[in-house]
C-alpha cells in the first residue's frame, strides 16, 4: 500500500491535495466540506469584509472569533490566507491571524487583478517580496507560506527572496493574467472585475515550469498549484518538485470530490509504477 501522507512544515496531511485559496473557502463549514470530500489540507481565505472588520468593535469581530475557533473539528490542517497593500498592512493582519487557530499562514503577494494589491502594486519583485516576508515573519510564530505569481520573468529569484525573508514554504502559483473577455454584442468586458486570471488546464504548463524552477533555487517545500485536475497532474507537479498540490479549478471541473478522486489516481499511478512513497517521485524530473 502506497504511503501518500505528507509532512508539510510540521503539518500532517493525510494526502498531498490541498484546497487552494479563494476556492469554496470562506468559512469553517465550507472548508470542512472539502475535507469531508477528501482534501488533505485546506486554505481558508480571509474575505475583504472580514479583513476590514478585524480589530473593530462591530459584529465582525465576534464572527471571526467564532468562525476561526476550534479549527481542529475541520479534520485537516487549516491554513489562513491573507493579502495586503504593503509590508505594514501584511504584518498587522498576520499578527492578528497568528493568534487564531490556524495551523499555518499563507501570504499572497500575487493577486493579479486588484489594483493596490499583488502584482499591480509591484509586489512581485525580489526586494519587496523579501521586505514583506520579513515583516510578516516578525509577527508570525506559525509556519509561513508565501504564494507567488506566475506573471514574472524570474520566479526563482522571487522564491529565493521569500526564503531569505523567512518563508517556510512556497505556494506556486496564483492565476495567470489578468485576462479579459469582451462580450461583442453588448461591447462590455464580461463580469467586470470578477473575471480573474487564467487557471486550470491553461495554467498547468506554466505552473509546472514555475515549480520546476523554484525547486532548483530553494530548499523549502513547494505547494504546486495550477491546473491540477487529475492524479497524473499531481504526479507531474510532484516530479517537478512539489511536496503537496493545491487544487482550485478542479473543484469546478470534477466536483467537490476532486480531492478524493485525485488521491485515488495518485495511489493507482504509484501502484502501477512501483512507487511506495511520494518522496520517491519528488523532484524526479530534475535527474539527469
Amino acid at each position: 500500500m502506497a504511503d501518500i501522507g505528507v509532512n508539510l512544515c510540521g503539518l500532517k496531511l493525510a494526502n498531498p491535495t490541498v484546497l487552494a485559496s479563494g476556492i469554496v473557502g470562506i468559512s469553517k463549514a465550507s472548508v470542512s466540506y472539502a475535507v469531508k470530500n477528501g482534501a488533505g489540507g485546506v486554505i481558508l481565505t480571509y474575505e475583504g469584509g472580514m479583513l476590514n472588520s478585524v480589530g473593530y468593535p462591530n459584529p465582525g469581530i465576534d464572527n471571526i472569533a467564532e468562525e476561526f475557533s476550534n479549527l481542529k473539528s475541520v479534520g485537516a490542517p487549516v491554513i489562513g490566507s491573507i493579502t495586503g497593500k504593503n509590508a505594514e498592512e501584511f504584518a498587522m493582519l498576520a499578527g492578528k491571524i497568528n493568534k487564531m487557530d490556524f495551523a499555518a499562514i499563507e501570504i499572497v503577494m500575487s493577486c493579479p487583478h486588484t489594483p493596490g494589491y499583488g502584482t499591480m502594486a509591484g509586489q512581485s519583485t525580489p526586494e519587496i517580496t523579501e521586505e514583506i516576508t520579513k515583516a510578516v515573519r516578525a509577527k508570525v510564530t506559525k509556519p509561513l507560506f508565501v504564494k507567488l505569481s506566475p506573471n514574472v520573468m524570474a520566479i526563482s529569484e522571487i522564491a529565493k527572496a521569500a526564503e531569505k525573508g523567512g518563508a517556510d514554504a512556497i505556494t506556486a502559483v496564483n492565476t495567470l493574467g489578468p485576462g479579459m473577455v469582451i462580450d461583442i454584442k453588448s461591447r462590455k468586458p464580461v463580469l467586470g472585475g470578477k473575471i480573474g486570471g487564467l487557471s486550470g488546464d491553461a495554467l498547468r504548463p506554466v505552473a509546472v515550469r514555475c515549480v520546476y524552477d523554484i525547486y532548483k533555487s530553494v530548499k523549502i517545500p513547494i505547494i504546486g498549484t495550477g491546473g491540477v485536475l487529475t492524479g497524473e497532474h499531481a504526479v507531474e507537479m510532484i516530479m517537478a518538485g512539489a511536496t503537496a498540490v493545491g487544487i482550485g479549478t478542479g473543484v469546478y471541473n470534477r466536483g467537490i470530490s476532486v480531492f478524493r478522486k485525485v488521491t485515488r489516481e495518485i495511489t493507482a499511478f504509484m501502484k502501477e509504477n512501483n512507487y511506495s512513497t511520494l518522496e520517491e517521485m519528488r523532484g524526479k524530473a530534475h535527474e539527469e
Binding site: 479563494g22 476556492i23 469554496v24 473557502g25 470562506i26 468559512s27 469553517k28 463549514a29 465550507s30 472548508v31 470542512s32 466540506y33 472539502a34 469531508k36 482550485g248 479549478t249 473543484v251 469546478y252 466536483g255 467537490i256
Partner: peptide, 14 residues
C-alpha cells in the same frame, strides 16, 4: 460551486 459564497453552516453544503 467554486467560490464558496453560498456555503451554509455547519456542514458546508453549497
Amino acid at each position: 460551486g467554486v467560490c464558496g459564497a453560498c456555503s451554509v453552516d455547519d456542514e458546508g453544503k453549497r
